[in-house]
Amino acid sequence: MKREEVRERLENQAEQSYKEFNDKIVPGVKNAIGVRLPALRKLAKEMAKEDYKEYFDELEHTEKASLYHEELLLQGILIGIIKVTPSERMEYIKKFVFKIDNWAVCDTFCSGLKFTKDNGPLMWEFIQPYLTDEREFFVRFGVVMLMCYYIDEEHIERDIEILEGIQQEGYYTKMAVAWALSLCYVKFPEITRSFFEKSNNKLDDFAYNKAIQKIKESYRVTKEEKAYLHSLKRK
């Protein structure tokens, strides 16, 4: 399917009201046209059965500024569902991460990389350089991948160590770190509580307090736990 045809399909499914909603929740995105995710996923499934490589090639030779927000989302979704080997998919991932410039594209992309569940050790090593990068959305990509696929008994202690050590100062990096730590607490409260109690905790104040705030918003945490965590917030 050629890009021209894809754009026409997207334009026909665009909703002005949804565009206005999207513009509010994804600040800085000026090229959204208002296509909902279910419609994008449906189109991606259709395209995955065809010659998607032609579409990818066209995108590679197109200025990013001229792409619809939904075209980026669509490409990210496609990368997660096409039938390729893990190594081939990782090559697509490497190229796509350079295009990520907002939380919506990042998080939708990561949540669709479900092949990670069957390639855990391989992808764990793959995401490590992103977690120590200096670029905001490179690091957010690594953190969201960690959060989606590696908050488990095998990785929890290493997860917290990695999250504490992230130095990238971007707002969307810090929000991802806070979000990940809140999920660590929900799944492994005792281990994560010890992290918040550490007197030499290296996490910056914003991410530390935001993580506690997100934990307090969880319905899976008791009132007593929330009150205790609130007492640990930094002034």
Rank of each mutant, 00 (worst) to 15 (best):
F56W: 05
E153M: 10
E63Y: 01
K117A: 14
C106N: 15
G112W: 12
H61L: 02
N119T: 12
Y149T: 12
L122C: 08
W124A: 10
E136N: 04
V97C: 06
S111R: 10
G76I: 08
E71C: 00
M123K: 09
L122K: 15
E60P: 00
I82R: 07
D101A: 05
L74A: 09
G170Q: 04
I160T: 04
F115V: 11
Y150T: 12
C148D: 15
F137D: 04
S87W: 00
V105F: 11
G112I: 03
G142N: 01
L73F: 05
I162G: 08
R89F: 03
L131G: 06
E161I: 08
L163M: 07
D101I: 00
I156E: 13
L72G: 00
E91R: 10
T62N: 01
L78A: 10
L72T: 03
M123C: 14
E164F: 01
E58C: 03
K99E: 09
E71Q: 00
K94Y: 08
T173C: 15
H155S: 08
Q75C: 09
A65C: 04
T173L: 13
T85W: 02
K94F: 11
D133T: 06
M145I: 12
P129L: 04
S66R: 07
Y130Q: 08
M175H: 05
C148Y: 15
E157P: 03
I166E: 07
E71D: 00
A104S: 13
E125H: 12
D107F: 09
E63W: 00
L163S: 05
F141E: 04
D159V: 06
Q75H: 12
L72C: 01
G170R: 05
T108W: 11
A65G: 14
D101Q: 04
E70V: 00
G170A: 06
F98L: 02
R135C: 01
R158E: 15
I166C: 04
H61G: 03
E125D: 13
L146M: 14
F115G: 14
C106R: 11
V97S: 07
A104C: 07
A178R: 00
L73C: 05
H155R: 04
F137L: 01
C106F: 14
E63F: 01
L78K: 10
K174H: 03
D159G: 09
D159A: 13
Y68Q: 00
I162F: 11
H155W: 04
G142H: 02
Q167I: 06
D133Q: 03
N102V: 03
C148I: 12
G170C: 04
L73I: 08
I93R: 09
C110E: 09
I162Q: 09
M90E: 13
L122P: 05
L72F: 01
F96K: 05
M145F: 07
T62H: 02
L59M: 11
F115E: 14
M90C: 12
S111C: 13
V84S: 13
R158P: 09
D152F: 10
D118L: 12
E154M: 05
G142W: 02
S66H: 02
E157K: 13
H155C: 07
